[in-house]
């Protein structure tokens, strides 16, 4: 200890103190402060960039999730539309079918009726014509036949025979 105190050099202490304090202040001004500021600024920049990247990623994720959702929705919608379309189609077909069949029925029945009516008409016409013709024939025959009595008689018999048959 005594040796240490004896060795203690006031001059060296003085110079060391002066020089070292000067060095601290100089370096603070010209080195440490600007360097640390640059480093901190850089760190902040990197941190900001990283944060922005993360945010972008999150946004991307959100977007893609949204996209997926939209796609799924679209798919469901399409399905629904298709289903609706199918059912509408089926209904339409069914409707058309039933309508067609009822119409056909109607047409058929009306046709049938018509046919019947026409038939009836034709029948009555034929009947009338047959009656007319027969009356005419009868007239003619009568005129010819009735020229002599014998023929007249024969005719009447024949006619009667025919009628009976």
């Amino acid at each position: 200890m005594e040796k240490l105190i004896e060795e203690f050099s006031v001059g060296l202490f003085f110079w060391q103190t002066v020089l070292f304090i000067a060095l601290i202040f100089l370096l603070r001004k010209f080195a440490w402060k600007p360097i640390l500021n640059a480093v901190i600024e850089r760190e902040e920049k990197i941190e900001g960039a990283l944060k922005a990247a993360e945010e972008a990623e999150n946004k991307m994720k959100e977007l893609s999730a949204n996209n997926e959702k939209i796609l799924a929705d679209a798919r469901v919608e399409r399905e629904n539309i298709l289903k609706d379309g199918r059912s509408i189609k089926e209904k339409m077909i069914a409707d058309a079918k039933s309508q067609a069949s009822t119409e056909a029925e109607k047409i058929i029945t009306s046709a049938k009726e018509q046919i019947n009516i026409e038939k009836m008409k034709a029948m009555t016409e034929i009947k009338n014509q047959v009656a007319d013709i027969s009356i005419e024939m009868a007239e003619k025959i009568l005129r010819t036949e009735l020229k002599d009595a014998k023929n007249q008689k024969k005719l009447i018999e024949e006619a009667l025979k025919k009628q009976i048959n």
């Binding site: 240490l4 202490f13 060391q16 070292f20």
Partner: peptide, 10 residues
Amino acid sequence: NIAVTFCLAL
């Protein structure tokens, strides 16, 4: 030198 380390410690 003890003077130097003394300065730093001080």
